[in-house]
Design a protein around this nucleic acid. Structure first.
Lengths: 192, 192
DNA sequence: CGATTTTTTGAATCATATCAACGTACGTGG
DNA sequence: CCACGTACGTTGATATGATTCAAAAAATCG
């Protein structure tokens, strides 16, 4: 049940058997059906989630009711509204299962506790966040510098898995373009 | 000389006198004139920089020679090409002083060493990166969901200091719009 | 299989980019 | 400290990529 999480940790830092037990005790498992929510606009995000399997999306809704996907998360990824999680203030996001999913949940206080009892995890999260920082900056660079087609091509190159796995409209949203534009881009790219 | 850096650390984690000395020994100071570069396309980013004073920008150049600003950094901020710093591979970015500046530099190996000798710094960087994560996600959400005017207004609200301090063309670039568009937006906003 | 969601296609519209010209501010050397 | 040159900001006219809205086709789900 904790294999994937412990592997994720061991890939980045050494960890003792005793510490593994501590880790396991800090998490609970949640099973989700497709379209279940872990978080809705107005909720406070009191937990962070490690995805064991399935696929989650994190998105906002604008005034016009349009979804804007800020994050995907599949097996081995962490997800949650970090803003709300850190501040304790209400979120303006939705966290939804696109597929049946299982996630390991850790509450704010339990994570804080765990970080003091197993301090090597500070390093684990630091490394995780550094890698994430690089990935988000690549996304930002694409968003500010590229047109719709180039953004899509870079996305497919970087995440070939997602491109097949999730409905296109969410990819379009993630790239900041409309589903119609993405559809047209795909036929044009295929022609060449 | 190390005041601002030590304050930045002490705001997030407790640190002993001995550890402060270790920190100081790990850094060197660089003084920059306006338009000096700490990094150019093709260079490997072997250091991360903590800005003591002045203002730095991190940007890419596209095929058309247009700058795309991915990051600003003023007093108390960290900056560098994290991708190149972590991977050791060549950067495709430029890191330039917009004003005369002083930065504290720490080499890759020295930071790694420091993180083992002063492990509380793992926590410092983890917290720093978490806060940064929140900020970048806000930027991404703006980039994918808002038009030029709303992006600018959110920027001014979030960083009123920058809005006055740096040339508008860099703000436009940071927002993913042209300087002309930003200029027009500003007169329109002022009219209302 | 039928129902719902997603994708595609077309036509009109809109926001922003582009290009060019002009005015202004800025800082740098004499 | 002034004058010159360069960089920056503004404005206008036009072009363009992307959006919007609507409807049909295709895929997916229960």
């Amino acid at each position: 049940m904790y294999n994937l999480l412990l592997q994720s940790i061991e890939k980045k830092v050494p960890i003792t058997q005793a510490a593994k037990i501590e880790v396991q005790n800090a998490f609970t498992l949640k099973k989700l059906r497709k379209r279940d929510y872990l978080l809705r606009d107005g909720d406070i995000c009191n937990e962070m989630y490690f995805v064991k399997n399935g696929c989650m999306i994190l998105y906002t809704l604008d005034d016009g009711g349009n979804e804007h996907v800020t994050q995907f998360a599949v097996e081995g990824w962490w997800v949650g509204d970090m803003y709300s999680y850190l501040s304790g203030l209400p979120s303006n996001m939705f966290l939804e299962a696109l597929e049946p999913a299982e996630v390991l949940c850790i509450k704010r206080e339990d994570r804080e506790m765990l970080l003091t009892t197993v301090p090597i995890l500070e390093r684990y999260f630091r490394i995780l966040l550094e890698n994430n920082f690089v990935a988000i900056h690549r996304r930002v660079a694409n968003l500010i510098s590229k047109g719709a087609e180039d953004k899509y091509l870079d996305f497919v190159k970087l995440y070939p898995q997602f491109a097949l796995r999730v409905p296109q409209k969410y990819i379009a949203s993630y790239l900041g373009i409309t589903p119609e534009t993405l559809s047209r881009i795909r036929v044009q790219s295929a022609e060449r």
